[in-house]
Design a protein around this nucleic acid. Structure first.
Lengths: 189, 189
DNA sequence: AAAGAAGCTTGATGTAGATCAAGTGATAGC
DNA sequence: GCTATCACTTGATCTACATCAAGCTTCTTT
């Protein structure tokens, strides 16, 4: 039932049956059809969500009403508006399912309490945060120094699975280009 | 002697004289002329540095030999290659003084030890990390959704001090544009 | 005080990628 | 199984910004 979550935790920390049970007790399971909202801008993002099945994206909308995909998460990944989760500020992001999905939701209240009960989770969250940090730093570097074509090539290398599962216009947005431009890049390559 | 550092810590946490003394005992003071390296790519960044006086920048160099300014730090700010500091991987960044500067260096060894001796510092570092995270997320949003002119206008609003102290071609790089383009933008505005 | 380096501006030209517009093919949900 | 929305492609045009090149000014260092 919670095998994938357990596996995910054990990629980062050692956790006993007993400790894992404490985590599981605090989890809420959520099943969502495709294109359903998990978070809307202005909400308080008081959870982190683990993707057990399906796929999601987080995105922002700027003043010109343009969407920008920030994160794509398939199975075995965590998604949240970490900024809002950490600071308590209103969310800047929307989070939405791409395919219909099965999620395991860990609310912030529980997290605070769990950190006392299961101290090894401190390490887990530290890793979660620093991974998120490193990912965003990488992304800046990426956008700064690569052309649209190179960014697409990197994506093929690092996330070939996205191409099977995620509509191309989301991928284009994630890579910081228009769908038209991505289409033309794919035609050449 | 360490007034500015104390003030900086107290912006984020409450710290007693005794605790602060423990911190200070672990600090190394460093005085650098302008344009001197503090960190080179490939080094292990095993410190965080507090700017007591002067200014620094961190930057990367891409395959095309182009520099990209990642962070600018004036007095009362911290600078590091946090990615390398956190993960222990070799640094991706260079750090260099812009003006001649006075730095307070906190080595990682000391940090680990200090976290045991002065638990309140856990909070300080959590805040330091999450500020860094939020800053990079903001920067992505910024670059994604604003034009070169708008990015410059935001900078004027948020960091007017940079304009007095930091050469314009570093600012241009920080904003993700060429010096020529920044020059033309300033001419119009 | 002089010489060199660093910093800034201006003009001419080039180009990656955006925007606009239209049409075709695929999917989901009733 | 039908219909509407969604997804993708292709072409024509436009534009923000980069690149290249040159000259001027202002600092730094000796």
């Amino acid at each position: 039932m919670y095998d994938l979550l357990r596996k995910n935790l054990e990629e980062k920390i050692k956790i006993s049956d007993e400790e894992f049970l404490k985590v599981v007790r605090n989890i809420r399971r959520s099943t969502l059809k495709r294109k359903k909202d998990l978070l809307r801008k202005g909400d308080h993002c008081d959870f982190v969500a683990f993707v057990e099945k399906g796929s999601l994206r987080s995105y922002s909308i700027d003043e010109r009403e343009t969407e920008h995909v920030i994160q794509i998460a398939l199975e075995n990944n965590w998604i949240s508006d970490l900024r809002s989760f950490i600071t308590g500020d209103p969310a800047q992001l929307y989070i939405e399912t791409i395919e219909s999905s099965e999620l395991l939701i860990l609310p912030r209240n529980s997290v605070n309490q769990l950190l006392d009960e299961v101290p090894i989770l401190e390490k887990f969250f530290r890793i979660l945060y620093s991974n998120a940090y490193v990912a965003t730093v990488d992304r800046i570097q990426h956008n700064i120094s690569l052309s649209a074509t190179e960014r697409y090539e990197q994506l093929i290398k690092n996330h070939p699975d996205y191409l099977q599962r995620v509509p191309l216009h989301y991928i284009a947005s994630y890579l910081g280009m228009t769908p038209e431009n991505l289409s033309r890049i794919r035609k050449q390559g």
